[in-house]
Amino acid sequence: MKKEGNKNKLEGNISMTTCYRTKSLCLSFRHFYFLILTFYLLLLFGCGYTIQTKANLPFDTIAVGKLENKTYEPKLQDMFSRSLAETFAEYGFKVSSSARYRLEGEITKFELEPLTEQNLVAAQYKVVIKANFRLIDTSTRKSVPLVADSPFITYFSSTERLENVLAQKELSTVSALKNLSQEIVRIITYNTPKNLAYLLFTASDIKNLENLILKLHEPKDPVSIYLRQQLSPNTRQMLHEYVNAKIPPDKIKPLIVNDLNTIVQGVSIFDEKRFAHIALTQETLDLIKQNPSGLERMRLNRLLIQEAYPDEIAGLNRITEKQ
């Protein structure tokens, strides 16, 4: 009986020890995953990047135009086209020949440079690729440079037979082209809005400030009523003071422009009843049907506002013709 009691006690101790070890193991795994998650978030946000979703893209469809290989390296154009298509898909872009925005460019340089030698044989190599690419708004013909002769460099080591060196060279080339593709798509994703800032209003776009102020201060139509609601409290106060001749025009114009640009960059302002009294152009009507996002939604808001106030605000076409 005593032996049996000791046996049960021993089994109980073993069971408790196992339980403690299991709990410790679970805690260790939780701690490990917490550290990994923390590291990932620090890496992501500490580098100045934010999580990019499809809804935040400047536009969701892009056309790929002429991609020219100006080097003597064969198959470079085909390899880059595949890499570019994969990268666009990874970021959430669709590729369509009918898209408004088109990518064009050329690979201007390809070099394979030996770096080190071993027994009079090259042991390490460098692949250098340079390219020029631009994003074209096919409607306005505005061109935005993306990369301009920035070198994309990869390295590989090989002291084996020539066919092995060539195989390593191809892998290294694919890696360099992937880096080039990612840089192009990254610039399109994060920098395009500021490069296409011509969609925003400027002070010179206000043709008749007094009329615009009166329509926003005492709104009588649905569009003016909506826009007044979107103005900042400070701007609404300034409208009141302007009507009462308390402030000069140059004090209120920047506030109106700033608020209009905030509205342009926000949600779609279109509502069928709100714009029922406005004679919208076919371009605007076609854009409404697309339920656009990103830059195209920004363009739609700009068109809707300028078409609601044709005598007060300059049209977008006048702006793009100046550039």
Rank of each mutant, 00 (worst) to 15 (best):
Q124R: 11
R82Y: 11
R30I: 15
L200Y: 09
S232K: 13
V165G: 00
A308K: 06
A308S: 15
L303Q: 09
I288N: 06
K178G: 07
A122K: 08
Y155S: 04
E106R: 11
T61S: 09
T108K: 05
K94D: 06
L25P: 02
K7T: 10
T202P: 01
S268H: 04
I187W: 00
L199I: 09
N301F: 01
Q77T: 11
D205T: 06
D286L: 09
E113C: 03
L166M: 10
D78I: 08
Y309D: 01
A55F: 05
I213N: 00
K273M: 09
F156R: 01
F133C: 01
T50M: 07
C19L: 15
T38Y: 14
T38W: 10
K109L: 15
I36S: 02
C47P: 02
F32S: 10
N291A: 12
A63W: 02
L25N: 13
E68F: 09
F275N: 05
L135C: 03
E321Y: 11
L67Y: 06
Y72Q: 13
L171W: 09
G92L: 04
T154Q: 10
N56P: 00
I278P: 02
H217W: 11
R318L: 14
L287V: 08
I213G: 04
F29K: 13
T61C: 06
N179G: 07
I206K: 01
I188G: 00
S28G: 14
Y190P: 00
I263L: 05
M79G: 10
E90H: 07
L166T: 14
L42V: 15
K215D: 07
E113F: 12
N234P: 00
D311P: 01
K178C: 07
Y226I: 01
P74G: 04
V128R: 10
Q323L: 15
S293Q: 14
G5V: 13
L146Q: 01
L27Q: 12
K3P: 00
T159Y: 08
S83A: 15
V127A: 07
P58D: 02
A176C: 05
I269G: 02
N69P: 08
K66Q: 10
D60E: 14
S157M: 12
T87R: 02
I288G: 05
V128Y: 02
E117T: 14
S98I: 14
Y40V: 11
K215Q: 13
S204R: 15
G315C: 08
C19R: 12
F32K: 11
S268M: 07
E312Q: 13
T192D: 01
L260K: 03
P248H: 07
I36D: 05
V128P: 00
K273Y: 12
P151L: 13
I213M: 02
K220V: 11
L57Q: 02
R228H: 09
R186H: 12
T262M: 04
M238N: 08
K23W: 15
I269A: 03
